[in-house]
Simulated assay, not measured.
Amino acid sequence: MASMALQLLGFFLGLLGFAGTVVATLLPHWRITAFVSSNIITATATMKGLWMECVWRSTGIYQCELYRSQLALPPDLQAARALMVLSCATSVLSSLVAVVGMKCTRFAQGSVIKSTLVLSGGVGFLCAGLLCLVTVSWTTNDVVVDFYDPFFPSWTRYEIGLAVYLGYASACLSLMGGLVLCWSSREVRRQNPVHRRLSPQSSPPLLPVFNNTYPSAPLYERPQALKDNHAPSLFSLSSSGYRLNNYV
């Protein structure tokens, strides 16, 4: 029961991480215009994401435009796109594998492959979390380096957007879900007698063990006394079934 609860916890953590990764991938709030000038009143604010660029005007108009050319994008943005899409795809595949291998499902019930599938799902969530974490860390580094670059004009500097923070949270959830799933598969291997019997540490017996039970030997009974309560003598003569002591 404890291993099933761990599997459900790890699975839901991985699902939350996957949902956050999808939202962070689609949101345009990866880079937001930094207002570092003395003028507080601003007319526009620019937000850049992986797929689109949005402009917010002081009049309340919010306008977004998709990137029209894939090859015209900078290499870091193309790499971020690929990594985030790969992270989402890995999370989907890990979710399917983990569902099949969980103890609450009926697929391959009582089989050795159940814990292996859960372990594979956990490893997949770990890979998805690492891919998302690498992407948001890379973006954070680029934003910080450009912000403190003295050669950059003040109106072209950007700050870290909400999508980056959401990506950090999603990566942490995916990593925690993967760790919990891997730990639950380890607990199942310890509790399952099939794994203990097939483990290389415990070698099988060389001779077969038989559990057949045999009936116990009958109780010893004393021989009945002979005729006239006389024990037979060694010197008694017998011929054709007659004994001499019967006539003496």
Score class of each variant (00 low, 15 high):
161 G>A: 03
217 A>M: 05
122 G>V: 06
165 Y>I: 03
205 P>G: 03
228 D>R: 04
173 L>D: 00
171 A>T: 10
244 L>K: 14
113 I>W: 14
204 P>D: 09
224 Q>A: 08
233 S>N: 13
121 G>S: 09
125 F>A: 03
122 G>S: 08
140 T>I: 11
159 E>K: 12
204 P>L: 06
144 V>A: 12
145 V>H: 13
146 D>Y: 14
124 G>C: 06
238 S>Q: 13
137 S>G: 11
161 G>E: 07
206 L>F: 08
124 G>P: 00
234 L>G: 09
123 V>R: 08
117 L>N: 05
137 S>F: 06
241 G>M: 07
190 R>D: 02
113 I>S: 14
218 P>K: 13
133 L>S: 11
124 G>Y: 05
215 P>R: 11
214 Y>F: 11
238 S>A: 13
173 L>N: 01
122 G>I: 04
149 D>T: 14
211 N>P: 06
197 R>Y: 04
233 S>R: 15
231 A>H: 08
133 L>A: 13
152 F>P: 04
193 P>T: 02
235 F>S: 14
183 W>F: 10
222 R>E: 11
225 A>P: 03
123 V>H: 00
202 S>A: 09
183 W>C: 05
165 Y>S: 10
193 P>E: 02
171 A>Q: 04
193 P>Y: 06
161 G>S: 04
126 L>A: 06
190 R>Q: 04
243 R>E: 04
164 V>M: 13
123 V>K: 05
136 V>T: 06
239 S>K: 12
225 A>Y: 08
183 W>I: 05
224 Q>H: 07
160 I>N: 08
159 E>P: 05
179 L>W: 03
194 V>E: 14
186 R>I: 12
183 W>N: 02
157 R>D: 12
140 T>P: 03
136 V>L: 07
130 L>M: 14
223 P>Y: 04
162 L>E: 09
